[in-house]
Nucleic acid binder design. Sequence first.
DNA 1: ACGAGTCATGAGAACGATTCTCACCGTAGT
DNA 2: ACTACGGTGAGAATCGTTCTCATGACTCGT
Lengths: 131, 131
Amino acid sequence: MNTPLRMTKQRAAVAEALDASDEFRSAQQLHELLRDRGDAVGLATVYRTLQALADGGDVDVLRTDDGEALYRRCARTEHHHHLVCRSCGRAVEIDGPTVEAWAAEVGASQGFSDIDHTIELWGTCADCRAL
Amino acid sequence: MNTPLRMTKQRAAVAEALDASDEFRSAQQLHELLRDRGDAVGLATVYRTLQALADGGDVDVLRTDDGEALYRRCARTEHHHHLVCRSCGRAVEIDGPTVEAWAAEVGASQGFSDIDHTIELWGTCADCRAL
DNA sequence: ACGAGTCATGAGAACGATTCTCACCGTAGT
DNA sequence: ACTACGGTGAGAATCGTTCTCATGACTCGT
Ligand SMILES: [Mn+2]
Ligand SMILES: [Mn+2]
Ligand SMILES: [Zn+2]
Ligand SMILES: [Zn+2]
């Protein structure tokens, strides 16, 4: 029996903010965004909600070069990776059938078990390139 | 004209500690390691040195799931990736000719520029599996 | 509708990694 | 050895994230 997980105004607001964005966003960005929009939600709650969503596999998390966590609700719920814009966070979901196989194979061939992989592509999207 | 970069006792100690380890290590681990060994070096200096080495491409940096930075001096200086043990940090350097091509291609096909990629494999090494 | 029990919230404290400050030290040329 | 300038380190400051705990909101049986 897992935790009940009640649907509250706050959790709905965070979820909505995530759905409304195509970009990867940090917890703090979402917090500000909600505050500005009028649906103020405590920062702690934003973090807790994101944590829960991430645990449930409903949002993807990735880390910036400087360690900040970014969240995004992807269309696809199955395993996939991303091509993310370094400046605005916009992302494209991508599959890598080849890469998946490669990762598993390489891991096994080195005597490691429980292989997992981190694969993210970074770049500058068309809009951001035009400043 | 780049910064001079003097060779000091401390920098040598950090470099040596890195060379002596086959595993990815955090700045704090290296700091303790040096302290225990007798070559105490200020934590700030450890960070500064690692930063410099990383900037110079002499050490590789990667981030733990919880955002902590890990450093390692790899044998190879050319571009490559790693298969890292989640529990002890031991790492194997790996090439991904296929992956390299795939990453560049996918990025370009989506209209993104300055494509870069983060590819790391995680697993449990043979030694750690045997507890 | 009422109350008890449980989960959720939020302000602020606490954390942990990393960076910054700044007075003092060491290195590297001359 | 003398100087000029980078380097060092203790401790303060940042910053993202988590924790604490008193208060608020649900759920369900009555
Ligand atoms: Mn994958
Ligand atoms: Mn590569
Ligand atoms: Zn962009
Ligand atoms: Zn191991």
